[in-house]
Amino acid sequence: MGTHRSSDEGPILDVRDLTTYFNTDEGIVKAVDGVSFSLYRGETIAIVGESGSGKSVTNLSIMRLIPSPPGRIMKGQVLFEGRDLLNLPPGQMRRIRGNRISMIFQDPMTSLNPFLRISVQLIETLRLHQGLNRHEARKKAARMLGEVGIPSPERRLDEFPHQFSGGMRQRVMIAMALSCNPDILIADEPTTALDVTIQAQILELIQELTKRIDTAVVMITHDLGVVAAMSDRVNVMYAGRIVETGGSEDIFYRSRHPYTSGLIRSVPRVDRSRSGPLYSIPGRPPNLIELPDLCPFHPRCEQAMEICRHRYPPAYSVGGSGSVRVNCWLYRETGAGAEK
């Protein structure tokens, strides 16, 4: 699974310095604090991190679905085909949502409207974005249900969400999200709420369908197994920032950032001995209110140095081709050319 990057074509999505704050009673929460990454046509990237690291807020910010108030996108750009989504008028933004960029969410039990038939929920997207009439939209909706592996789709179209199992509902969500052949699919922990046995099927389905219609995927997850299985590149997030980014092989087998290494060591593996408890990173993620200029991971880091307590590390390029970038003071000497 190589990247589909070609030299003449720029990224289809370019997120630059995205910054989203939430105003709370306790203070300003810097949920996303200067996140940048790019996504090329047809590739799959992963955003990995613990709960509260800002993965979901990053992607909701891209779609401009942050509840506001209390959330607010402070600065940054989200360039989609060169246009900044953050400055788009609401009407044009709606034409992108669900059409060019679509999302599936963590909990399929609550993400579908319990009061409306599946057909209504599928058809409304098709009619809105593709201008199909009711009859055509219904036919396409049935075809989509069939493609995501729901048996007798024509009949099930008229059922309500509660008549579907969790895995089936996630399939419906996938059908809905891909029905307009989007350029980008943002999958926000699509398997977290599902049975383990179903997870692999759902991931496979996402992979297969997006490849067929050449949709790029942003996979948000805290499960490194998911990352290893399907992503081309990985962005590791901690405390609202991307701390390490690189090809998924690099990240998985040669992780540089102590946080990434900790995450990988926390994954149970069949090829390792079962003696001893499973590793877990000590401590808890930091409070994102009033975070001073330091490495937020240092209290939990086994390799913390004096400087970690005083300044946030810049991004160092490391690895053979310099394709991995890591925000960690450990690479001050070895890393090539710090970028600001």
Binding site: R97, G98, T110, S111, P114, L128
Partner: peptide
């Protein structure tokens, strides 16, 4: 979550309210 889904589909505000919000 389901109203967030409706918005993520690009539905205009009025349709979100009348079709997805009012009943519940």
């Amino acid at each position: 979550d389901y109203v967030r889904t409706a918005r993520a589909k690009g539905l205009p505000g009025g349709i979100v309210i009348f079709r997805h919000v009012i009943r519940g």
